[in-house]
Design a protein around this nucleic acid. Structure first.
Length: 295
RNA sequence: GGUCCUGUGGCCGAGUGGCUAGGCAGAGCUCUGCAAAAGCUCCCACAGCGGUUCGAAUCCGCUCGGGACCU
């Protein structure tokens, strides 16, 4: 075990992670790796609340605007990226800051993922196509017949999990369950997890306000420009998908704004549920933390 | 003052005598490759009082609150 340390800052969206991370990185004279599943896409700007250019100029950031919406990004990709980057930074810095709200990405980084062979993308595409046409019933039937092991344990109503199970059994011939050993790896560096929180009402207020600001800053135009990319997973994002019915004349712009605020609140709530159960996190009130005391 | 309509949970909204409507909001939760994703659970209301009835959100009466029209 080295003396190197990764400080991981987590918390719900809009809680104030960015500014705290920058203060901490400056304090530690190091760089920041973002653990955000959307800010890594260069094409997504206003809607993903990326740090401002001014903020980015204060501390070098990684996994920010580093990929294209055409790229396949997932927890595995992040794990590899972040591990490599951390090792690289450790050569010249004793500590690194990771900040983000993607719980699964952070978990993958800290504990690793079980080795599951890569699945031919054609298999996934085919499954998605069939699911779109034939629906959940079909998917449930496929999984129950082809992977009874997963079917017995898995979430039978969750199409995403079912599709994942199906692609693994079709791609490898073995049940996804047989790969899930849930072995936690131990990283060769220290990990310190810091959680930022705010009273629920205050957080929701900040979210509502931030969405309004995004719209003022031209979110609508950004989304219009990305319309040709809407079939990509990267665009399946709060702040983007809500505009479609407005462009089709079905709902008002006010309704779009409300929906974005609503979905962002839901998202924040899910993040809190996720992070709350991690006993390694030390929690701080976002408006009271002091980077100097942490570092 | 009179006539008629109306009153369902935080909001919308179905239900005209017996069975949990439903949706939204809110809360709780799940989580190993789409995670800003996907899914699960909870929230048992019928304005009030009295009556009819084996049984009323549902029928009747009164009171209260909305609304429309008439004078």
């Amino acid at each position: 075990m080295s003396n190197n340390t990764v400080y991981i800052i987590v918390g719900p969206t809009a809680v104030g992670k960015t500014s705290f991370a920058i203060a901490l990185a400056q304090q530690l004279k190091t760089e920041i790796i973002s653990a955000d599943a959307r800010q890594c896409y260069a094409e997504l700007n206003i809607g993903v609340a990326r740090p401002s250019l001014e903020e980015l100029s204060k501390v070098p950031h990684h996994f920010i605007s580093s990929h294209s919406v055409n790229d396949t990004i997932n927890a595995q990709v992040f794990e590899n990226y972040a591990l490599a980057k951390v090792e690289e930074l450790f050569k010249t810095h004793p500590s690194v800051v990771i900040v983000g709200g993607a719980g699964l990405y952070i978990k993958a980084f800290c504990e690793g993922l079980d080795m599951i062979p890569e699945i031919d993308p054609a298999i996934r595409e085919d499954i998605i196509k069939q699911y779109d046409q034939l629906g959940l019933r079909w998917l449930q039937k496929e999984v129950s017949v082809k992977d009874p092991l997963y079917w017995a344990k898995g979430e039978q109503q969750n199409p995403q999990r079912l599709m994942r199970a199906l692609e693994v059994i079709l791609g490898t011939g073995a049940s996804i369950v047989s790969f899930q050993i849930k072995n936690k790896v131990t990283r060769p560096f220290n990990i310190v997890k810091i959680g930022l929180e705010l009273p629920r009402e205050e957080l929701y207020e900040r979210i509502n306000q931030r969405v309004l600001t995004m719209v003022e800053n031209g979110l609508e135009q950004e989304v219009r420009d990305l319309l040709p990319k809407f079939h990509l997973n990267a665009l399946q994002t709060v702040g983007y998908s809500e505009w479609l019915p407005y462009f089709e004349g079905i709902v008002s712009k006010e309704k779009v704004i409300e929906n974005i605020q609503q979905n962002t609140r839901h998202y924040a709530k899910r993040q809190m549920t996720w992070f709350k159960k991690d006993p390694e996190i030390t929690w701080h009130q976002s408006d009271q933390v002091n980077a100097a005391k942490i570092g």
